[in-house]
Amino acid sequence: MVNAEPILKTENLQCFYGSQRVIHDLNIEVLPNEILGVIGPANSGKTTFLRALNRLNALNPSYRQSGTITFEGQDLRKIPDNLLRKKIGSIFALPQVLPISIYQNIAYGPKVHGVASKSKVDQIVEESLQKAYLWDEVKDRLDLQANRLSGGQQQRLCIARTLAVEPEVILYDEPCSGLDPISTAKVEDAMQKLKEHYTQILVTNNTKQAARVSDRTAFFLMGELVEMTDTNTLFTSPRDSRTNDYITGRFG
């Protein structure tokens, strides 16, 4: 896996909000089909890093960045916003379902990308829900308002919704922070099974979750990448003493 071409790569990435620098000189490579865990205390730049990858940061008018990000060898700046975000999907911390039906939530993406035929949309909805392990729970009530589902179901609905636009990379921003342990397990389960087809980046405040789910783990601190290596090594014998302090719960 180490020899594979990185699918996403940042070079000297620096991110600012106004005059405040939140990411310093980040060089990171994300490999295809891996789950990359990103851990670190609050304000360490994890979320900013994630949102730089599909330019969601740009929605904030005070945001600026320098350095380059490449996606499949192509400079990110050369990819139009809507195409980039189709290929790199996002799952947010709180399940952000739209106040429409389950079906419509998932159909939204394909529709904005021009899938018009009803049977095709039906098929995408079913496939996406199956991939997110939600189909069996909702197949009889696709017309239900999505916000009537439980938190864990809503989050898997969000995953299904992202899968419906056929992304290559999925970014998770603390996807289980509002979920109970059983829902969390279901989301993690779904992530494991999605590995086959997708590259996934998981930002989490829960170090144990990173240890459970991710192949490699990166530790961010104050906007710097302190250490990034395969998850086992990072959690058993970290090189940097700050990593050790964090994972053993001495700060953060």
């Binding site: 599909n54 969601l56 929605l59 916003d81 809507n82 195409l83 980039l84 975000r85 189709k86 290929k87 999907g89 996002s90 947010f92 709180l94 952000q96 739209l98 106040p99 939204y108 993406g109 529709k111 904005v112 990308h113 919704r161 992202t162 636009v165």
Partner: peptide, 24 residues
Amino acid sequence: AFREVSFSLGATRWQTVRYCVLPY
């Protein structure tokens, strides 16, 4: 959040306004 969801699914700004903001 509605706008972010729409953008994150690859909708253009106008699609976002048309389908995710104006109806509400």
